[in-house]
Computed example of a mutant assay.
Amino acid sequence: MRASIALFNAGRTPLIRFVGKRSVPKSIDHTPRVHPASPTGSLPDSFATYRAKAQQHGPLGRAQFSGRVGAQPGSALGPVAPKAGEFFDRAELPARFGRLPWTAAEIEAIETGGASMYA
């Protein structure tokens, strides 16, 4: 007998059982609220004011947008340079933070799935 066919024909019963009848709230308040962990404790005035101050891979708030995505090249959005003490890539860090070279024992342990450590 094929167990998979027998299980398929038996029907599906969910493993989770909910207690009580489902109740949907009559009214839900969707007004925006400040997050309890917000550093400022206030909501932004509008998305435009938020975007004027936001920065993601360069300044976002520019008035030269013509309403199309990609209307300007990325270089026209402003410089994208790390601040003092910030780095974009691990290769830019000092040598003491660089990756260590693999040893032959580590390579052997990875290739054998760890079995060479016990043999």
Rank of each mutant, 00 (worst) to 15 (best):
G11Y: 15
G11W: 14
G11I: 13
G11M: 12
G11P: 11
R12F: 11
R12Y: 12
T13F: 11
P14C: 04
P14G: 04
I16Q: 11
I16Y: 15
I16G: 03
R17G: 07
V19D: 14
G20F: 06
G20K: 06
G20Y: 07
K21H: 09
K21W: 01
R22V: 03
R22S: 04
S23G: 06
S23Q: 15
S23A: 14
V24L: 14
P25H: 01
P25Y: 00
K26T: 03
S27I: 01
S27Q: 10
I28V: 01
I28F: 00
I28L: 01
I28T: 02
D29R: 03
D29Q: 07
D29V: 02
D29Y: 01
D29E: 09
H30D: 06
T31F: 03
P32T: 02
R33M: 06
H35A: 06
H35I: 01
P36S: 00
P36W: 10
S38P: 10
S38I: 00
S38E: 05
P39M: 05
T40Y: 10
T40E: 06
G41P: 05
G41E: 08
G41M: 13
S42Q: 15
S42F: 12
L43K: 08
L43N: 03
L43G: 07
P44H: 04
P44C: 02
D45L: 15
D45I: 02
F47T: 07
A48D: 14
Y50W: 11
R51A: 05
A52L: 08
K53A: 02
A54V: 00
Q55W: 14
Q55H: 14
Q56M: 09
H57C: 05
H57D: 11
H57E: 12
H57K: 13
G58N: 11
P59E: 14
P59L: 12
